[in-house]
């Protein structure tokens, strides 16, 4: 199996604080790995360790099959990154900032700058000083720098930060197309759960420095599945009549839940059955399990 990212027992300790604690990550080539966690959970510390910006207190890091060496050595010509909020030289224009990055990446062809400007729709701001950009365009500049050298692996910390809703969709589509068409691997951290849910093929949840759960594609699909939630005054009777009608229902938290596609597509049919047996529904709603609920349960974030 080819892994774009491999960590074994990755740990980082600051004094008595375990910022990252024995994190074991395996990110496959070509997948979009969503890295979720509350503020201070260890997301950025992990990303910095993956980029050789901090030295782990313990464990190993391999990026694109290469162990990170001393002095921050790594396969950086194939890795694009955006760590926390983007930064740029405010006195340089967008184009100049990208030209600096191009040269430091050792890319001879100056056209890559124009290409990435177009890709990130920064054309009208190309000659504007970075210091005068809006936060959304500043974020685009950061993403442009991450994509400039056509990397195999993208490490993105909160990539949707500062973008307007149209920008969020645009970047989502861009990342999807990079993965689908170019086989790029994306490792993105976020606390915008809906965004991660829409994009990621696998999700890792980090809490208090520990990777507490990984959700694979099947689990995510299941989590994204819809169900019909029914409430009635006589729940037992409603349950029995639905069973008799051939619907598999489960009772949970004072409601009946049905995952059957027929019920989800035709809730009116369920209502008709219940009315016929004299237990009309008091509530009938198509619901979807979501990552947010799951995340909150795991991390206690709602408390």
């Amino acid at each position: 199996m080819n892994y774009a990212i491999e960590t074994s027992n990755l740990s980082k300790q600051y004094g008595k604080v375990h910022a990252v604690d024995n994190v074991h990550l395996r990110v496959k080539t070509g997948e979009i790995y969503g890295f979720l966690g509350l503020n201070g959970a260890g997301k950025t510390t992990t990303i910095r360790a993956l980029l050789g910006m901090i030295r782990p207190s313990g464990g190993n890091v391999k990026v694109l099959g290469q162990a990170l060496g001393p002095g921050g050595r790594g396969p950086w010509a194939q890795v694009g990154h955006l760590v926390e909020s983007p930064a740029a030289y405010s006195e340089l224009s967008v184009r100049e900032n990208l030209d600096v990055a191009r040269r430091l990446h050792g890319i001879q062809n100056p056209k890559v700058v124009d290409e990435v400007i177009e890709q990130l729709t920064l054309g009208s701001y190309a000659d504007r000083k970075a210091g005068t950009l809006s936060s959304g365009n500043f974020q685009r500049l950061g993403l442009a720098r991450a994509l400039l050298h056509k990397p195999e692996l993208l490490l993105l910390d909160e990539p949707a930060n500062g973008l307007d809703p149209a920008g969020v969709i645009e970047i989502r589509e861009l990342l999807k197309s990079l993965v689908q068409q170019k086989g790029v691997t994306v490792f993105m951290s976020s606390h915008i759960l809906t965004e991660v849910d829409r994009l990621a093929t696998r999700i890792g949840i980090i809490h208090k420095g520990q990777l507490i759960e990984e959700l694979d594609t099947d689990r995510l699909e299941k989590m994204r599945s819809k169900y019909l939630e029914i409430q009635a005054r006589d729940l037992e009777s409603a349950f029995a009549s639905l069973q008799n009608a051939g619907y598999k229902a489960v009772m949970k938290d004072g409601a009946l839940l049905i995952e059957d596609a027929r019920a989800i597509e035709h809730p009116d049919e369920i209502a008709r059955i219940l009315v016929q047996v004299g237990t009309p529904p008091t509530r009938l709603a198509v619901e979807q399990q979501n990552l947010e609920e799951h995340f909150m349960q795991l991390t206690g974030g709602a408390k």
Binding site: G71, G74, A77, A87
Partner: peptide, 18 residues
């Protein structure tokens, strides 16, 4: 001060060169 340091650390151009 401008937090641009993080853009200089993971590059093919080594830190000692910078």
């Amino acid at each position: 001060s401008d937090r641009t340091i993080k853009e200089l650390l993971a590059l093919p151009t080594t830190r000692e060169t910078i």
